[in-house]
Design a protein around this nucleic acid. Structure first.
Lengths: 229, 229
DNA sequence: GATTATTTAAAACAAACGTTTGATTTAAAT
DNA sequence: ATTTAAATCAAACGTTTGTTTTAAATAATC
């Protein structure tokens, strides 16, 4: 059956609870209870709650970013001498982060966590000094991949004002993050309820991920290419 | 000098602290200290911390939404018989929410709060049952205006698949919210640090708000109009 | 001037928080 | 069989949380 180590149990439980309720609101007791392990095991394995938060991110971010780079290389190889198209650029950036299918629940919900932190490090709830540092360390994992894509976007849009380009990059992140937040577990996301109307719903699931990705690529590509002065 | 009532002092202090550190992380003691009033005054005027949170939102949301509707009516009058253009539609939705200039610090920082809650009700930190209800009540203030603009967008893009339209609306919200989060007080926003590069910075200030608004309108308009199948 | 509403101070409350402790069990190495 | 290290456990630690209470003092309203 389940050969999961205590460490993994904690990571899985924390991932789910963090995605559903945030970091500050999720208590270490709730985590260890859901994981079915002893309270002290958390501090034993991760040193502190902040240590656990970092570990939750570390486990998922690197594979996603690596897949982005691999996808990019594949597209560049296909393009040959010509510059990579904006669509393909967006796909390489978005697809690995959006993909839900084939993942277990906690990994799906991690997408929500990524959406959160992309919107604002403060989703981690600043407050304590230590949290601010934790936040900063997690953000570093995104900075590298961000710069890669910014440079490629800059090459794809050579005539665009650098400042506006930076803002468009930022808008792309916002649109992507908003889509990521449309993944949810058992309880429905409140903003989804507000946005949804009878007949059609805004949700990111294993069933519609291809469609959502298509929509997102279209939108960000068009937005990034918008005419300027 | 300051003829502010205790009520207003509390609202201002809370607005700033909430925007900087989130709801759960900001203690009622920190709020009353910053406001320079007695601890018991908070519960006296607002009943509870949740009551204060609601009051903080209620104070700002309604004027913003009203300005959106007024702007919309003005544009519709100017357009005469023809349908309102997508650019104007975006402007009416975005400008009143983005405007920073002429506002005092706490009102500026409220934009960050709005950005947060647009991204996800969970930014309020769910957890407690009462918080979930608080969140839901706040979201209701956005639902109405959201439907107005969704219908107008639907009329502007009659051939677009309704599902994709809903997603584009969602992407627009994400891009807008991301821009809103670029407002900050004394301490710099961590995601801004990560995105910023030497020479150009992504920040929403009184000085560049016109430019940012222009960028945002361009981006969302182009994204909303993207070709589909 | 009497009455009601507001504000302050100080203290206390139960509940929840993250973390630590010391003892105990488990598993591998010698 | 003995030693050693890692892992788990129940229990308690000290602190902070939102809220309430008591009482006295000030301000506003009638």
């Amino acid at each position: 059956m389940s050969k999961k180590s205590t460490r993994e149990k904690l990571l899985d439980a924390a991932e789910i609870l963090f995605a559903e309720s945030g970091f500050e609101t999720t208590s270490v007791r709730a985590i260890t209870e859901k994981a079915g392990v002893n309270l002290a095991a958390l501090n034993y394995h991760f040193g502190s709650k902040s240590g656990l938060i970092e570990a939750v991110f570390k486990r998922r971010i690197e594979p996603i970013n690596q897949e982005r780079l691999e996808m990019l290389q594949r597209f560049e190889a296909e393009a040959g001498d010509r510059p990579i198209s904006l669509e393909k650029l967006m796909e390489a950036f978005l697809a690995p982060a959006i993909k839900v299918s084939g993942r277990e629940l906690s990994a799906k919900l991690f997408i929500r966590l990524m959406g959160r932190i992309h919107m604002e490090g403060n989703s981690l709830d600043s407050g304590a000094e230590e949290m601010t540092e934790t936040r900063r360390r997690i953000m570093l994992n995104f900075k590298e991949i961000f710069l890669v894509f910014r440079n490629l976007l800059s090459r794809a849009l050579p005539d665009l004002d650098p400042e506006e380009l930076l803002w468009r990059m930022s808008f792309n992140l916002g649109a992507m993050a908003h889509a990521m937040l449309m993944v949810h577990g058992k309880q429905p996301n409140p903003i989804v309820e507000a946005i949804n109307s009878p007949g059609s719903s805004v949700r990111l699931t294993s069933e519609n991920e291809d469609k959502v990705l298509k929509f997102l690529i279209r939108y960000t590509t068009a937005g990034s290419m918008a005419a300027s002065d």
